[in-house]
Design a protein around this nucleic acid. Structure first.
Lengths: 127, 127
DNA sequence: CGCTATTGTTTCGCTAGCGTAATCTCTAGG
DNA sequence: CCTAGAGATTACGCTAGCGAAACAATAGCG
């Protein structure tokens, strides 16, 4: 039909397809916080600092440090100290992170297309 | 207005807004596996067993057991043994889980509307 | 300089989650 | 009955992550 009539149930179902596909593909099992951080770094304008991300996500700075540690191990982001103020640390993108998120986006789009094609009927059982 | 031109970047940005809002709202910090399980239980037709979910998500059965433990503590799902075959355990929905996912869906829809309606200002209204 | 404020990390004690292997419980077939 | 096997959980040793508090490093101002 015309496009995605994005009601809540369809939105959830798209998300279900995408995240199940991601888990099946053995992608790293990121927590919501880690994913929020990753997406923020890639999709909002830099610079991104620990302090800024902590405020954005309303979590403690150590929580950001730990999430960055994890994402750095996975090479999805990297640290770069701000030379203008050496107390600050910038969280930056990496090639691997770009690839990861690109594929993630494709997953969501595929899930959305699968959703709209055909299955206009079955709103899954009552809810 | 009829639908969302869902390219990868927009998809990711919608997801970013939704998950950041969720984290800010202090929602439980579920992992991708846990979220995949939760969505599968609510959006695909029952019955859902440990074995079936393990196959669906391509993870080990103990991993499913642990995820169900966690989601049960949060009262987002519950266990029910199959009386016809008492080895099996059904993973079922709960009222709290329905509410949780409903709100989650609203979050995504809000994020999508914010995305398409060009309210590119700061954060969407906080949740 | 000295002092205070800011920024990020580390430490502490603890909980959650991992994969593999073992175990428990139940079913079904002979 | 009894046994083979299926389904789920538990045990084990380990890693990751938590919040709160302490810490280290740097900035900036008097």
């Amino acid at each position: 039909m015309s496009g995605i009539q994005l009601n809540e149930l369809q939105a959830l179902d798209i998300w279900r397809r995408a995240i199940v596909a991601s888990v099946r593909a053995d992608a790293p099992d990121l927590s919501a916080r880690q994913m929020a951080l990753l997406l923020s770094v890639y999709l909002t304008p830099p610079p991104h600092t620990v302090r800024g991300l902590a405020q954005l996500m309303k979590v403690s700075k150590p929580a950001i440090t730990r999430a960055v540690n994890r994402l750095t191990e996975l090479e999805l982001v990297r640290r770069k100290t701000d030379e203008a103020d050496r107390r600050s640390v910038f969280i930056q993108r990496t090639v691997r992170g770009s690839v990861f998120l690109r594929e993630y986006g494709e997953l969501i789009v595929s899930a959305a297309l699968g959703e709209t094609e055909g299955s206009s009927d079955g709103l899954p059982p009552r809810y």
